[in-house]
Amino acid sequence: MLKELDWGKVVIYTALLLFALIYIMPIYMTIITALKHPANISLATAWQPPGDINWGSFAEAYKKLGPNFMNSVYLTVSATIISAIIGSLNGYVFSKWKFPGNEIVFTLVLFGMFIPYQIILIPLFRVLRQLGLYGGIPGLALAHIVYGIPITSLIFRNFYARIPESMIESAQMDGAGFFGIYRRIMLPLSIPGFVVVIIWQFTQIWNEFLWGITLTGHSANPITVGLAQLAGGQAVNWNLPMAGSLLAALPVLLIYIFMGRYFIKGLLAGSVKG
């Protein structure tokens, strides 16, 4: 038996297990800390599992972060749906209705997803104030929809590029126009594209912080801002920030665990050529 021991395999599995341990360690620490009674949390015993389990931290965290959580739900759901629809139409035009200068215009649109958002923050703040949208969720949703145009158009454009021209042409022979083709051919084939875009936008918008903290007032703060405030400063009881972190991570983690395949597709699409 010993002779058959493959040292290459031993090295690979040892390395993989070691890395896996490092990647799991933070979430383990988060869960055990969230389940401890505040009195039992100490730096010395930080790695030990809780003696008796205290679910109260989650209830308390939800009491504090519940409104933020719901703000994020409204914001993320509405902005994600709208930007998926816009992206689908744009991707359809960019891939199937090429016009002169099509590629240049597309590149100029793509540029919008690579700018550091600090460069547009001051005018955005000003324009939202002038429109009366500053401080609330609709203004924040507007920002996410507009700046979501490049990535959603890119993903749908690459997705639709795989639909053969011949299908479009034969539909045109049958007298279908712009919307006819979209409804009869593109839309039915679009489900995976929509899943990728929706997951991507949902994750991005749910996790966003910079606009959340600069463009919304206290009552409209999304979950990331709520968590930063809950955990900020010299927090004494770490059970609360840890329970809050799990709460804030829950929706995106669930999406990731159940639809990870599509999440990776969105991830790779984000790197234009990848």
Partner: peptide
């Protein structure tokens, strides 16, 4: 890959606790 799906605020909060001077 799961850390990729988390917000910087979540990972930041968790790691701040992990990197506490006398713990984690």
């Amino acid at each position: 890959l799961y850390p990729m799906s988390l917000s910087f605020i979540v990972t930041g909060t968790i790691w701040r606790w992990l990197l506490a001077p006398r713990g984690g």
